[in-house]
Amino acid sequence: MRILVGVKRVVDYAVKVRVQNNTVDLSNVKMSLNPFCEIAVEEAVRLKEKKAADEVVAVSVGPKQCTETLRTALAMGCDRAIHIQTDRRTDYVDLQPFAVAHLFQKVVEQEEADLVLLGKQGIDSDCGQTGPMLAGLLGWPQVTFAAKMDLEGDGMMVERETDAGTETIKIPSLPAVVTCDLRLNEPRYATLPNIMKAKKKKVDTIAADDLGVDLEPHNPVLDIFEPPPRKEGITVESVDDLLDKLRNEAKVLK
């Protein structure tokens, strides 16, 4: 079985982003592997370690620095990587999930992958659309928000997060697309010896423009602004006071 894992390079979760010139300022900002993609990589590598998968291929769409993100995935245990290079910003402004899903479709077909693991969303644009769109384009079954995954026969059982708890879905047979949620696993570290080994693994670069996919964004972004600062709170005297305010000022209680 060959697994393809999506690896997105995003602004590091710990960075407080600034908006400048009507866009998120990316200069001198720390960029990292999207935490949900990291979980996807971990899951794929575990499947390989269990000998359920023969090869794990990491795929990233973005600028040349994506190779660094791909190296992280390689250091975690992926076998090789494919970099679909584009200078478009990948945080929704210039390149949107629909186009990314099309790019992935090309690679999935080319690589004859049996399973595609993606993060449930990128923490930059928070769309959560690439996985479902890709499944749609490929005509494959999909499970989103995976919290637990077990191979079973030709397919797999996937427990997924829902608002009310979890539900377990059976995929009778692969191929399939699964997007990974937080509780699926705890990703390993890329250790120093593995970082060194990763240097020798293969990274193929393909120009996004050469894949025959329409990269233009279809949803124009009208405005980008920072969240308004939180207004200072007040201290209420008593529970009655609180209830009164919730009822009559905030009008959230009847």
């Binding site: 200069s27 592997l33 990291e38 990703p187 570290y189």
Partner: peptide, 19 residues
């Protein structure tokens, strides 16, 4: 306050020459 982050080759966007 967070535990999850990428574990390896982070990079910086390097537009500014000095930094």
């Amino acid at each position: 306050s967070t535990a999850s982050s990428s574990a390896g080759f982070d990079s910086y966007d390097d537009d500014s020459v000095t930094l």
